[in-house]
């Protein structure tokens, strides 16, 4: 509680300093606007319902992309982590692919699927896919070998080993991987909402940039940040609930 109090105090000081700076320095609204102007814009969006349209569209896109990425990457990462032969066959290529900057494939997706919702979901999924896969894989690899030894000593079958030790043991790293993937999916969301959309929090930031409207940009950024923090907090809470033995960072 004391922590939270200090945070709110510093936030008020920071916003106050920003507000005062804009008023006292006489900086043009073209370059920077005070937080009160940004708050007013957010208020307008809230009253007109625009806020919910944008948040809804972005959440749908984020959920679709992250869901798609997780649905493929989690089983794939578990398989690569658990099956040594597969790991040897594809592991080096996964690392190579991971070192490749994902946005270079955005033009290809646009060429293949056009300015459609499917393209945007795939863009979001593409940013999150490999980070999730690799983090699940590494998480499985770091499972304590002594757990396996104990289970084997107690005569666990392969199936029991998988269902009772390996999968529950991996739950924590899967959730940690989703958190990392979630952050990258947000970058993907911003990139995806550049193309042929008219709603979404990334879109608001982008249209603000195109119109040189700093207020709109900052309001969009604030929403993107809230979306990011919400995603992070939600997944962190899930991690604590599903894998309470893991130390949370």
């Amino acid at each position: 509680m004391r922590r939270a109090g200090g945070f709110w105090l510093s936030l008020i000081l920071l916003l106050g300093a920003w507000e005062a700076y804009v008023h006292l320095s006489g900086i043009g609204a073209f370059f920077l606007v005070p937080p009160s102007t940004v708050a007013r814009r957010l208020g307008e969006w809230l009253v007109t319902g625009r806020l919910f349209v944008d948040l809804g569209a972005s959440l749908l896109l984020l959920g679709g992309g992250l869901g798609l990425a997780a649905a493929v990457a989690v089983p794939a990462g578990l398989s690569v982590g658990l099956w040594r032969r597969l790991e040897h066959a594809v592991g080096p290529y996964l690392l190579l692919a991971y070192a490749t900057p994902a946005p270079v494939f955005v033009p290809l997706l646009l060429m293949w699927f056009g300015f459609t919702w499917a393209t945007r979901v795939l863009i979001v999924a593409m940013f999150a896919f490999l980070p999730i896969l690799l983090n699940v894989w590494w998480g499985v690899r770091t499972l304590d070998a002594s757990w396996l030894a104990v289970a084997r000593a107690f005569g666990a079958s392969r199936r029991e080993l998988l269902a009772r030790v390996l999968l529950p043991g991996s739950a924590g790293s899967v959730l940690a991987a989703l958190r990392i993937g979630g952050g990258l999916a947000l970058i993907g969301l911003f990139v995806a909402e550049t193309y042929g959309v008219s709603r979404g929090v990334g879109y608001q930031t982008i249209i603000g940039a195109k119109r040189m409207d700093v207020t709109g940009m900052l309001a969009g950024l604030a929403l993107l940040g809230m979306l990011g923090v919400g995603l992070e907090l939600g997944l962190a809470a899930a991690e604590r609930r599903l894998a309470p033995w893991r130390p949370t960072a």
Binding site: F30, F31, G183, L186, I187, L189, F190, V191, G202, T205, I206, G208, A209, K210, M212, V214, M217, L218, G220, L221, L224, G225, G228, V229, L231, E232
Partner: peptide, 17 residues
């Protein structure tokens, strides 16, 4: 935490301005 959770690429518009 807030800065880290916000996709920094979205700052691109501000940087252009």
């Amino acid at each position: 935490a807030f800065l880290n959770a916000t996709p920094r690429v979205a700052l691109i518009g501000l940087f252009v301005v």
